[in-house]
Nucleic acid binder design. Structure first.
Lengths: 246, 246
DNA sequence: ATTTTTAACTGATCTATGTCAGTTTTTCTA
DNA sequence: TAGAAAAACTGACATAGATCAGTTAAAAAT
């Protein structure tokens, strides 16, 4: 198990189409009209649901496709030469991932499924060709990569400057915002990743993650019940996430 | 001083052209033929030299241009709402910067000159239009952004997992490699940034940067003489940068 | 249902690096 | 060229978070 998904798992057809996908406004399809949408639709392959622990693509694989998350969630991570894993991101419905393989033609990270997940797969070459015809799609691809760079710059700041409490607070607020944009509850959500994975992502040990979550709960900022998080005082949490008195 | 450069400083003409620029192979011009190069040349503005401390563009400015470094070096940094500066990168001749403004249309970071520097400025809209005609240019833009994402993912790993010695070792080796590719000495170079800036970038205090540099020198891995660095044992330095026994 | 395995939590210590405080060196300025 | 200001270095001490060692709780497996 935990093997890369064979191509056959990605079926060429499905009754679902971009034009009636409710992730329209989040995905690369933003602002495309019906004609344009159907052109995009032609090059999208939709998969059967993937289950927890499966690897969608692995570090070192030839870069060929990008993926849009339809339902569920995934993590991306790199494995260093000393074998250590570093989680580089968690992704949710509407997110487009895999574009970081363009530079070398080799996937620089692995994508692993965190919970039952469906994705749309697109051959990058086809997407690039279509982007010549569709300026809005071309712009959207650049925007997606630009946003990814900005997100990572925020993570650099978090890792270089913030203490454990601020990191966790920032993590929870970012999740909350991302869920809100997707139409999910911003105040109550389920963590699809383990404490260990949160710690790995945030540069903390599992123990510290546990302690901070407990502390935030004691201080009345959140409620933690296993994987279920409720944000009780988002204002205080935001203030904490921004750090040191100002 | 330290103000954003007024547009007039960027002169529309110069006797230098992309076709006889020795950064050809590093810059976005990679693999363009003569005809293509001259089209790129038409939309490039070349500046008078900028001097240390000047701000090429500031966080919050409207995003309009990207910049290719021709000579010298710059840093990019974000300023958080609490006023803390986080350096997100150092850039050298051949590097293309500023693409991270595409997403929001606002520059997400500031660019500051570290030493006397010349840059080529290109209006992004013009570059995007030209990229439709020139598939190799289009691909190069995507590659540049993809590479930037990968670089930042390496930084995430460094900040989340490495100790002070490993961070400095990694920093020096990356610089060495980047200088080598540019045809400069890989074993002897001058740091254009201060210890403070190195620490800020690597999530360490100035004191720790000093101590580690001294320690590496004592152990015979490098020679430090003020801003001048010599790498004496690149193998040991590389081993150290990769961290924990393996 | 019961056992096994894995994840999460908690307390007691240790340590790498931050903080503070001062000196030396370098760079800037007049 | 001297004097001021900034950068770099170094030592003494403090501390946030890691590590270690266990307990408890939740999934998985039988």
């Amino acid at each position: 198990m935990n093997q890369t998904i064979p191509a056959q798992n990605i079926s060429a057809h499905s009754d679902q189409h971009c034009c009636n996908c409710n992730l329209h406004s989040l995905c690369m399809a933003v602002s495309l009209d019906m004609t344009e949408l159907s052109k995009l639709d032609d090059i999208v392959d939709r998969s059967k649901p993937l289950s927890k622990g499966q690897t969608l693509s692995a570090q070192g694989d030839k870069f060929q496709s990008v993926y849009a998350i339809k339902t569920g969630s995934v993590k991306t991570y790199t494995t260093s030469c000393s074998g250590e894993e570093q989680i580089t991101g968690f992704y949710f419905p509407g997110d487009l991932i895999g574009l970081n393989g363009i530079d070398t033609g080799i996937c620089p990270d692995s994508i692993k499924i965190l919970e039952t997940t469906t994705v749309c797969q697109v051959q990058f070459e086809q997407l690039d060709m279509l982007s010549v015809e569709l300026p809005k799609l071309r712009r959207q691809l650049l925007k997606t990569m630009s946003k990814e760079i900005c997100n990572e710059q925020h993570m650099l700041q978090l890792l270089a400057k913030k203490n454990a409490d601020e990191r966790i607070a920032t993590f929870l607020i970012r999740l909350s915002n991302r869920f809100k944009v997707r139409g999910f509850s911003e105040s109550r959500f389920r963590l699809s990743m383990s404490r260990h994975e949160i710690g790995n992502y945030l540069g903390l040990t599992v123990e510290t993650v546990s302690r901070v979550l407990t502390r935030l709960q004691k201080n009345g900022l959140i409620t933690v019940e296993n994987k279920e998080i409720e944000i009780l005082d988002s204002k205080a949490l935001l203030k904490l996430s921004n750090g040191k008195e100002d």
